[in-house]
Design a binder for these strands. Structure first.
Lengths: 326, 326
DNA sequence: GAGTGATTCGAAAACGTTATCGATACCGAT
DNA sequence: ATCGGTATCGATAACGTTTTCGAATCACTC
């Protein structure tokens, strides 16, 4: 910056004003300085800016892992950030079930404190929100975090899914749920039970089990369900990953979907349209959720008054993994 | 930091030494200071550190867009970075074909100069490498960039794919290539031509066309090829995305894969195993490429002497999208 | 031509670190 | 006692910005 100042024949103070568009510098000077900045290819040092002004115009989005779900969110978020004047940085907290939580939490806190103005978190990782640092949670960890939140209507979606299965004539419906410390997983299970109860169908506790939201863990649970003497005729999987995993397991056991078993998922990740058979599922508007969370974060930083809990609607997407029960 | 210093009864200089593990502070003092750091939850300011020492222990990885290809790379990279003492930040350069290139380039340059110690770039975006800033390119833009590079053997992989099709008895083989300014795209086309020539089969120029590496653009090209009076019996698509797109187009035209048309892809993104029929393709070890590029970057920063061009092998993955030509 | 207000600019402090280097204390040996 | 050497520690100057505030200039007005 002092280079710029020298060659433009002004002081660093003036250069700073020009860079930040502050009032109080003559038009002629502005142009001259901008010219020099362009020629010299000057870029302000983020570190120094942050140090002095506690503002970097950089936002973070923290995901547990790079998988389809978070990737969709990222797409939406990075589309929203374009043109907002902010820069978006994504980081993964490491493994989902992760080992080195301590280390990750620490380095995360470091970034937060000093280098980004706010963050969207898409992971159960708890983060202590320092003063002046904004964070919004997507699909958050259970419990009264009090954080601004973006999610979809998991409960209603689960009711949708279950009702669809019921309407097809299924009565023995199994459920593979996510980790119970995930709010979304609990809501989906609750929606499932509600729909069953409303239809007057008793749920057999032996065929609702925790499977986790990840491919491998769900596979084990699916295998358990399907080897039961009187196996379910339909399964509502807690998310698409476990639904896909369930279909794999079914196939490997000689069962064909949807003839021998109906499967419905939740999320509508892009993969769901590709698998064979294409997966019937509940759509969450993932990209839109990503975009909304970023918009919320930006508004929060700007101090605009607004609703800090956004719930987006879910929708049934009928494809080919379910059929009527004879 | 001065808070820590005060409550521990030492100077900030000593605290700094403790934080960085420098020699020259008594064991007792180290422990006391660490105790206080822990109690106060002190975290060093990245900005200030960067400002003073020009080192942040943060690495960046820049992708054009969050799609399956780069997501796999990200996975590999974030796995490799764990335990290395570095933190990894991902950013998307915005849209692949992107509008606001200028703005992106600028903010990218800002990050580079001040906030990260080095970067892996997975995009044709050119980046001027300032002094002391290391970058390694994955699957890089064409031309003699001189950058350290990680890629896979695109040429050999294309030969593999073409030979496979030839061995199945196909002679009318079409090729949908990527943007010609991508080195990988050119190499794949070159490999295709080489294999054809070696087999003594003439390539019909009307059935090798640029389709781009993206779903939508490839669909158009695929449609053109398949409506030709004597359409190809097999298509070697430049990457999996366009292969999948080609299968979609074929299906929508009433053609069944592989009976009426064989399709082979390139990359082996996870989706390829899921589509119907499962896609035969050439595997690039994407996660490994991500990991290797990060390792290379770290080594470069550490100043270790090593080979700066890494080429990983490709492999034929036979699934169900190709069959013998009658 | 002196006074007034508006405009434009720059000197300097501060942000939170790290590196240098001199100061101090302590130890054993002469 | 004095001294040389070691271990330990702290004062201080940077690093590149932003911000405040006073100084300087200028254009007017009476």
């Amino acid at each position: 910056m002092s280079d710029v100042a020298r060659t433009a024949g002004v002081s660093v103070a003036t250069v700073s004003k020009v860079v930040n568009g502050r009032y109080g510098v003559a038009q002629a000077t502005v142009e001259r300085v901008q010219q020099v900045i362009h020629e010299l290819g000057y870029e302000a040092s983020l570190g120094a800016q942050s140090l002095r002004s506690h503002r970097t115009n950089v936002l973070g989005i923290l995901v547990a892992e790079f998988e389809p779900f978070s990737t969709e969110l990222l797409k939406g978020a990075s589309r929203e950030v374009a043109g907002s004047g902010y820069q978006l940085l994504a980081y993964s907290s490491g493994d989902g079930e992760g080992a080195a939580i301590g280390w990750e939490r620490r380095s995360l806190a470091r970034l937060s404190g000093t280098l980004i103005d706010g963050a969207v978190i898409v992971t159960p990782t708890v983060i202590e929100t320092k003063h002046g640092f904004h964070v919004v949670a997507v699909d958050p960890h259970t419990g009264p975090s009090g954080l601004p939140t973006v999610d979809s209507d998991n409960f209603a979606g689960a009711v949708l899914a279950t009702n669809y299965l019921l309407a097809l004539g299924h009565r023995r419906i199994g459920h593979i749920s996510g980790r119970p410390d995930l709010e979304s997983a609990r809501l989906r299970e609750a929606g499932f039970r509600k729909a069953m109860a409303d239809a007057g169908v008793a749920v057999d506790e032996r065929i609702v089990r925790v499977g986790g939201f990840r491919t491998e863990s769900a596979a084990g649970t699916a295998a358990e369900l399907l080897t039961l003497p009187d196996r379910p005729t339909a399964i509502f999987a807690g998310n698409d990953l476990s639904a896909i995993s369930t279909m794999d397991v079914a196939r490997s056991m000689g069962l064909t979907v949807p003839d021998d078993l109906s499967v419905i998922g939740f999320d509508n990740i892009p993969e769901s349209a590709l698998v064979n058979p294409p997966l019937t599922t509940i759509m969450q508007p993932l990209q839109r959720m990503g975009a909304e969370s970023l918009r919320l974060l930006i508004d929060l930083i700007a101090g605009v008054e607004r609703d800090t809990h956004i719930r987006l609607p879910t929708e049934l997407v009928v494809r080919a993994s379910c059929r009527a029960h004879p």
